[in-house]
Write a protein that binds this DNA or RNA. Sequence first.
DNA 1: CGTTTTTATCAAAGCGCTTTGGATGATGCA
DNA 2: TGCATCATCCAAAGCGCTTTGATAAAAACG
Lengths: 349, 349
Amino acid sequence: MNLKELSDHLGLSQTTVSRALDGYPEVSERTRKRVQDAARRHNYSPNTRAKRLATGRAMSIGHLLPMSKEHEMVNPVFSDFIAGAGKRYAERGYDLLLSVVRDEDEADTYRDLATRGAVDGVVVHGPKTNDPRIALLTELGLPFVVHGRSSAVNTPYNWVDVNNRRAFERATALLLDLGHRNIALLNGLADMDFAARRSAGFRDAFLARGHAVNEALISNEEMTETYGYRRMQELLALDAPPTAVIISSIIPALGARRALVDAGLALGQDVSVVIHDDDLSYFRNEGDVPTYTATRSSVHEAGRRVADMLLEAIANPDKGSRTILMEAEVTLGRSTGPAPAVRRFLDQA
Amino acid sequence: MNLKELSDHLGLSQTTVSRALDGYPEVSERTRKRVQDAARRHNYSPNTRAKRLATGRAMSIGHLLPMSKEHEMVNPVFSDFIAGAGKRYAERGYDLLLSVVRDEDEADTYRDLATRGAVDGVVVHGPKTNDPRIALLTELGLPFVVHGRSSAVNTPYNWVDVNNRRAFERATALLLDLGHRNIALLNGLADMDFAARRSAGFRDAFLARGHAVNEALISNEEMTETYGYRRMQELLALDAPPTAVIISSIIPALGARRALVDAGLALGQDVSVVIHDDDLSYFRNEGDVPTYTATRSSVHEAGRRVADMLLEAIANPDKGSRTILMEAEVTLGRSTGPAPAVRRFLDQA
DNA sequence: CGTTTTTATCAAAGCGCTTTGGATGATGCA
DNA sequence: TGCATCATCCAAAGCGCTTTGATAAAAACG
């Protein structure tokens, strides 16, 4: 059933039927009722393809899921983010177009999406410290919002980010307050912007208190469980193993704990751990007292906010750039305790 | 730049330009070359919306991501599956349309997708033992492939599944061979088809050897880390705690291990564990000797196969239904060992 | 009562592409 | 030379919708 058939059947013009269904005022309530009933009865809804051609809008938002050849790895944060954003799109009548692309094809895919007119806007995931996608999209004139930021880019653009620097500064400060000095950082890949900011926060805390940072204790890798395991083993094998570790995601943190258990060490006793917790739906750091002390920020909510911002930017294209900086909360769990020296001191007293 | 402008510019008809770019034979190689060069130079590619209207095909595949209200939970398997499927879509020029919907809206969304003509086919995720979506989609005439099966549905349909029953029968048999009799099963939600088949395999193994199944040791829940932790604690608190546990996913398995560690028990020594491993990209059960003994089947590959099947089904609609049953491999890791009694016996000898 | 305004409807022109059904001229064959 | 065949190219129809500009009927106005 298409518009022509429906309007013929009703003895009305296509114009009137189309307008009746879209809620235009220049159609009487009586006919509107008639049209709506008929549409429902005949299970009619306008053909998406025709509608989009006629209106010139794609009513779709693009998300690119880049896959690197070496580590066929999907960002575990992706699905929760998408869930948050997708709900918003659905509410507003937008479709979500997901493109799985090889890293090296990413730029071409953006170009293609733009010239084909397949989407009205896109979301940029996982920005690098100096991310070329921002310049590209600006040049293409395709509305976009970045989930995160790109430190080296000075032109304005829309972004939603967590205050990673402050979060990690606070996490580090907490460990310093507990007497730890020998603190390791298991961070994400070095070229990722969030990782750079977290390292900066980590260093900030040391410097603010006049302590030196041991750069050898900072590592940057893809955040898998295996990475956490292997790196923690390496750290424990050092002459002076760290007494505390900050880990950029709950996933390597699980690997780290595995290494601790293998070594017969107790989490929060022998080694303190603070993680960054994206509040993944299948990996909640929960309980009356959560397992991990954490800097927490919901990636699901970030998805919602990015979607809202992008839809707003599409509706009002010339309103300048928008930004949202979310603060992470620091929640205390059972994975942190005083440094060994402090513990002995406290036990004595 | 659109087709009209490009063809005017070339002094050719729209027909010829369109055909030249689509590789039709009724255009001379010389003009084709000219057209292709011009298209590249002017950065032309046909408008998706117009193309789709003209051809009557959506060139999109729909995936629904259902979200239940209570547990705002995304299937962790989803992103790896999507990555596998999406790559195939991209290769074949299809877009992937992702719809995040509330559980109760799922049927309506399928209807809407079909009447709007927004997709050429859909993938059904996480089928229930008796899943109404299959009948609905069949009735709608929308091509689809189910990732998994639905035991109670007797009409033919396209599916790609793992032989869950045999995998879990083999896993259980292994534990029985090691002398375990008191074996628990941490399974997924009871109405999920895969969970029913795994329970069946579990029971098969017992019955095949004339042993009774202790139904109290079978539990069904959403497969989070927390579930694994809590359930393992419950099991350990029993009068006769199980000496072995089979767990339907690596995620609750991590929770279970956490509970074991808390209780001071050693994985593979005090309690044996076999998991089902979907080979998630950020959670590889790897190493020279993997941590877990597992039944393994790559969900990434399942995605690829589902995509291939669906595209094939769209291309040849009246070729009857297609099915693929993948066998899981059983890989030995460090999480399994002889039952306590057997261990003592072996130590004596 | 004639004229203007408002209300309710419609015909037709796009949107940018694909595809059908010719046309045209060159080539092959007898 | 005459006719069929082939290789190229084109005009125009159509995909199913939205939207502009116009019209007829009803209501409001002086």
